[in-house]
Design a binder for these strands. Structure first.
Lengths: 202, 202
DNA sequence: CCTATTCACATACGCTTCGTATGCCAATTG
DNA sequence: CAATTGGCATACGAAGCGTATGTGAATAGG
């Protein structure tokens, strides 16, 4: 018995996703020819349509995979941090770091939203956001963060800023210097969420 | 003399841009057929290629037009505001408001970046950002905003958050309620930029 | 062990869309 | 009034996508 059937199927699915991920990440979604990257996986479009319905379906699968990896990495980093606030800041930093990878930028922040619409409406719906939202909620209960704001909303705004931050660093001619400026500005923004020690002003 | 030549040319250019703008804004860039929307303007692709080189060139022209309109509207709102900080906040609010229009969302925030790349690298380069950057710089000199951050960087981060804010409102099932939550969270983030009255903390 | 059925995947076809090359006609120029 | 420019349309070829159909191997049933 060479290989069980199920295993072969899972393998071709994985090969398709991997090939598409590479093509989407480098060439871009619109410019990536289905004939080309299925061939690079030793397959044809027949397999693609069979498993994913169409090109968009395959993109969804690729995005789900990347999203899973990002969430895992964030959870790992998140697990070690002295305070919860630091924990939260670390999550954001990690998010920005990951967004520096061209593949993630292209697929998750550019082509993904363009093809599938607002990421907030995606099925798996960004595991990263969910994690950030949880921590914001906890921080509110602890009195560290102002209680007037909606955690998920705040998470998404921060998420938008993070993505801009990453793009700015990635496209910079001097990533080192830019990175410093961006991270400084970003942390400054986050300060706005903290409850002030003296609430008399304003 | 019916019409001077130059006028006719400008007119066809305008008609093409208007038709494309409508098609891109409703159908979407990728799905908009050049044959279709040029025909809806009483023209053919011949005119399009002659004036704009290709589809992307036309998108650039459309974006330039919209960007100009946005900048004009922002400057107008900006002109009336008691304090400079309020001025700045108003700019942001106006930006979010404009981003609620589906056409702007689609063209400027989704298809535009996907096709032309990071907006920060666009030629006209978002007149809105430039305006915000100017005001942030002034606010720093006045000592209202912390001096440690780079104005343009901060503008872009805020810009990213604004765009998220607008999308969240626009896609909400209850725009009224969502709008309140989003604006609250957004203004809270902006607070982070303000210099604290008592600089001893931190 | 042999037949039947399923199904993963390939092949073949037509349709749409894009980019280029070419042609035509009106408006300018001298 | 002749010549030329250039704005725009038409014609053609190439490529990509989606669907319909075909095929062969693995499973299931007797």
């Amino acid at each position: 018995m060479h290989k069980p059937r199920k295993e072969m199927i899972a393998e071709t699915r994985a090969k398709l996703i991997a090939a598409a991920r590479h093509a989407f990440g480098t060439t871009g979604y619109a410019e990536a020819s289905m004939d080309d990257f299925t061939a690079s996986a030793g397959l044809t479009r027949g397999a693609l349509y069979h498993h994913f319905g169409d090109k968009k379906g395959l993109l969804q699968a690729v995005i789900a995979q990347i999203d899973g990896e990002m969430a895992a990495r964030i959870n790992e980093v998140a697990s070690r941090a002295p305070t919860r606030w630091q924990h939260f800041v670390d999550e954001c930093s990690t998010y920005i770091e990951m967004a520096l990878e061209p593949e993630i930028q292209r697929i998750m922040f550019r082509d993904g939203p363009a093809v599938l619409g607002d990421p907030a409406q995606w099925p798996n719906c960004s595991a990263c956001i969910a994690s950030m939202t949880d921590h914001l909620t906890a921080l509110q209960e602890e009195g560290v963060v102002v209680s007037s704001l909606d955690p998920e909303t705040a998470s998404r705004l921060i998420n938008g800023a993070s993505s801009q931050a990453a793009q700015r660093i990635a496209n910079s001619s001097d990533p080192e210097a830019t990175s410093k400026k961006v991270v400084t500005a970003f942390k400054q923004l986050l300060e706005g969420l903290l409850k002030k020690p003296d609430p008399q002003s304003n």
